[in-house]
């Protein structure tokens, strides 16, 4: 286990002065992940919030080699980089031991980038893929994605007189990745830096592809006070909306079991995107969400042999 003091002393690989919104969790996730290896690292990034806020020409926040290609292909791009590395290393042109990591938002990962990621995982490239999941297309103005939770209001699936926001439950993406049977898969959250750091460390050390899905609260899209991003992330874990677990060589392990389970209503009422659920006629929707969480948590406990 690393101490906060040690972590703070490690070199920053993402410089401050980038242009993410106040309260954005993405840069915290990136800095924590990049501190989890002391080896040289090359970053690939899907189009999205992180990319547009850190690479505005002629400036760059990246102190490590970085490549952005397009929206849906961070994994394919990095697979090309990683393959080139193996060839150039063999030929003696590259001499250092380098680690490779891709960052993509939920749009670039759950949706448009799924095929590219699946292909790269199946091929077994030695690389880490980190999804910072802020649960919608935030960069383009809070549009619905496959990661948007049930009933959340977004600009393309807004609540209205007839509809109550998104009509489907969030895609269980971590399990989709797990189905590739890669060495390491994890779900983490920005508030638990120690857990995230350890998972990133394991991911970098894995022999083959590794994937970490990190919840990244977004003040703009979720509609909450930018000072409360970390609180939001903790609430997501304590309500079991976003369980923290890992899958090492196909073995599931639960990393956090809330001592006191908080009902989902506390998470929902803290964010403007769920405001409409608190009309009396929508009470059943909150119950539906709670039931869904109870069910998926039960499934997870069984997978983790906790039940």
């Amino acid at each position: 286990m690393v101490s906060l003091k040690e972590l703070a002393k490690k070199k920053q690989r993402l410089a401050p002065g980038h242009r993410t919104c106040a309260g954005c969790a993405a840069p915290i996730i990136v800095r924590t992940v990049l501190k989890a290896t002391d080896k040289p690292v090359v970053v690939a990034n899907a189009t999205g919030c992180l990319e547009v806020t850190t690479t505005i020409y002629p400036y760059s926040s990246w102190k490590v080699p970085y490549i952005h290609n397009a929206f849906e292909n961070a994994a394919a791009t990095l697979s090309g980089v990683e393959t080139a590395y193996r060839v150039l290393r063999r030929k003696g042109i590259v001499k250092k031991d380098i680690k490779f990591v891709a960052f993509g938002g939920d749009g670039g990962t759950y949706d448009i980038g799924l095929q590219s990621l699946s292909g790269a995982l199946e091929r077994g490239h030695n690389m880490v893929y980190v999804c910072y999941d802020n649960e919608a297309y935030m960069n383009t103005g809070v549009q619905r994605s496959g990661a948007t939770p049930y009933c959340a209001s977004t600009t393309t699936a807004p609540c209205g007189k007839v509809l109550q926001g998104k009509e489907q439950f969030k895609k269980d993406f971590t399990k989709i990745v797990a189905a590739h049977h890669i060495p390491y898969v994890a779900q983490a959250s920005v508030h638990n830096w120690n857990d995230l750091f350890n998972k990133a460390k394991k991911a970098f050390e894995a022999d083959g592809p590794a994937f970490i899905n990190v919840l990244s609260p977004c003040p703009l899209g979720w509609k909450f006070d930018p000072a409360k991003s970390i609180e939001m992330a903790k609430l997501a874990a304590d309500t079991r909306f976003w369980p923290l677990y890992e899958i090492e060589n196909d073995v599931y392990k639960l990393n956090y079991k809330p001592a006191k389970i908080i009902p989902i209503v506390e998470f929902l009422k803290s964010q403007g995107r769920f405001k409409h659920l608190f009309k009396p006629e929508n009470k059943h929707l909150i119950e539906e969400i709670q039931n869904h969480i109870d069910k998926t948590w039960d499934e997870l406990l069984r997978l983790c042999l906790e039940k």
Partner: peptide
């Protein structure tokens, strides 16, 4: 090294990554 990608989109994406890498 051949990369047997899952689409031509990824073929060109990986070519971009490899070429950027110096290959």
């Amino acid at each position: 090294e051949m990369i047997r990608v899952e689409s031509e989109h990824s073929a060109m994406s990986a070519a971009v990554g490899a070429s950027a890498a110096g290959a």
